[in-house]
């Protein structure tokens, strides 16, 4: 069930549609969509929660800047949904985190190398 009103799809030129699975729910979108667009088209918000206060977040900038669209795509955590093109059969899951000190440490290790 969508928790937010889905975005509206206008008439499009795309004739190829693909099916991806968001939280095991089959969603059909045009092949040119990004995963973030697919999430919004299905109204499946929030797409993540923060590790600090569990506050709810959703794709915000759609251009790779804010990192609010981080989800798990085909098993790969912290994937930017707005920078990833959908593929047929792709499996996407939300990143629902609880306050967790380890998460902060991993992030640091990644950036401060």
């Amino acid at each position: 069930m969508p928790n937010a009103l889905p975005f509206n799809r206008l008439e499009t030129n795309s004739d190829t549609w693909v099916t991806l699975y968001i939280e095991d729910q089959a969603i059909q979108v045009p092949a040119g969509d990004t995963v973030a667009a697919a999430i919004l088209s299905a109204g499946l918000l929030p797409s993540r929660t923060t590790s600090i206060s569990s506050s709810q977040r959703a794709p915000y900038c759609l251009m790779g800047v804010c990192f609010e669209c981080l989800v798990t795509i085909d098993g790969k955590e912290n994937s930017q949904a707005c920078m990833t093109q959908v593929q047929d059969g792709m499996r996407v899951s939300k990143q629902i985190q609880s306050p967790d000190l380890n998460a902060a440490d991993t992030r640091e290790a990644k950036h401060d190398k």
Partner: peptide, 14 residues
Amino acid sequence: AAQILLKTSAMTPA
């Protein structure tokens, strides 16, 4: 973001 969704996906916000 709304403009990008129009361009990439022919989508308008709720």
